[in-house]
Design a binder for these strands. Structure first.
Lengths: 241, 241
DNA sequence: TCTAAAATATGAGATTTCTCATATTATTTT
DNA sequence: AAAATAATATGAGAAATCTCATATTTTAGA
């Protein structure tokens, strides 16, 4: 595999615009803006390579990404998703010993990148930052627990609908089936079967090796069912924040 | 239902012994020990009632507990487990708006209880404490994500074995089937079917309405299979800490 | 460019798990 | 103590999902 380093560092006026539009200065007690770089990644680009400690703490302001990890047996698993307003690299900032997972943009993704060598120490001593990060993590942990305990309850059709919406780039869905099976815990055979069903129903249209979302509303409906519990929870956790 | 308030506040010498055996003073930058109460709960006792903000931040030093929550439709769900060295009530400490879940001891459980009205503000301004809590939450969030993404892959037999080991009080397992179905996301019918299978195999013995663990090793083996991914992950995250 | 490996596809029988129907105990309430 | 409610049980057919076998198409690497 050939990897061209293609992350774009956004400069000047454009950088300034991002900083103004998504101000995060209230998340720190020291003037962070001057240190912040704005990084832009294209679809499929790696934001962090597995096993390599990152040099930045990232804060996602636009886009979506996926967390991958390779198991002892060589199998690569999709572990979770990252969305706007999530942190990337906080595990490495907090834990000296931590096996870094790979993170790959699944759409164009823009991040604030805070250089660790300049700000790392300061961040770990910044009460406001730590308090915010702790809140973020507490909500995330709770969500995951809820999602875990609830999601087992629904058949693949619902979970897959949710997955498609989460991973689609606009209206185009094109994940590797093998990866998806792994993440959703179903067999390859069954995944194809259910995908075919979604096409039959007219929610998706298969074009070559990618799928186009034809009826987003219905998909959301399907996905919604399987997210009910989680939503109720998040609603209660998040509201008024 | 009749609920006698029965939590025991451990005093004097016994309190002192707990404090010495499980010192947590290194988790704070101020002298916390003098404020700490030691609370002891019996099996099935509620440590926190759903919807009631707790007056303490708890740190579990012995025992196991379960987190429950009631959904809009009145259904009560087991959300997750709590073990020794976990915090209870950190969500309430961190988030002003948070719907408090119910927490029930599933074996005799001993906690350090740190009174919020005395220490809450101080804790939220304590760098060391916040940093530790953030680490704890980051690991927990990661574990949950891994567990979620992996555990779907195994049939009930494996997940149930894990569940039984997690919830058993000594060798006695006696969860309500309805609750378990809900947590594990399977039908009542199927749960009984698999429980019967475990009995047939001689791993469990059914005595009235409770089950005795007859072959812990085999159960652990079954559970281990379904926990492989997670374990690998935790190993990498936790080792050397 | 050719070849090997990876990814996609599809069929068919076997397992797992679900739904529904219906009894039989506990437990709680009146 | 009787009645109502919740929890436990069991059977049987249906749906979801898995395993295995095998074929075709892409993709990566020599």
């Amino acid at each position: 595999m050939l990897w061209v380093k293609a992350m774009k560092k956004v400069q000047m006026k454009e950088r300034q615009q991002y900083l103004e539009k998504h101000s995060i200065s209230e998340l720190f007690s020291f003037p962070i803006e001057e240190y912040i770089e704005v990084h832009e990644y294209r679809r499929d680009e790696w934001i962090i390579r597995e096993g390599m400690r990152p040099d930045y703490l990232y804060y996602v302001i636009e886009g979506k990404a996926k967390i991958y990890m390779t198991y002892q047996n060589g199998k690569v698993s999709l572990i979770n998703f990252i969305n706007a307003r999530d942190y990337i690299g906080e595990m490495e900032l907090l834990n000296e010993v931590y096996y870094t997972k790979g993170i790959q943009a699944s759409t164009k993704t823009v991040c604030f990148a805070i250089p660790l060598h300049q700000c790392g120490k300061q961040m770990l001593e910044d009460i406001i930052f730590l308090r915010e990060l702790t809140k973020f993590l507490s909500v995330k942990a709770t969500q995951m627990a809820a999602k875990y305990s609830q999601s087992l309850a629904f058949p693949l059709e619902n979970r897959l609908a949710d997955f498609i919406l989460q991973t689609a780039d606009g209206d185009i869905y094109r994940e590797k089936h093998v990866t998806v099976c792994d993440f959703l815990g179903v067999s390859y055979r069954h995944l194809l079967h259910v995908l075919a069903k979604l096409c039959e129903k007219g929610y998706l249209h298969k074009a070559g090796r990618q799928y186009r979302i034809e009826d987003r509303e219905r998909l959301e409906q399907l996905a919604g069912v399987s997210r009910n519990g989680e939503e109720a929870l998040i609603y209660r956790v998040i509201r008024n924040e």
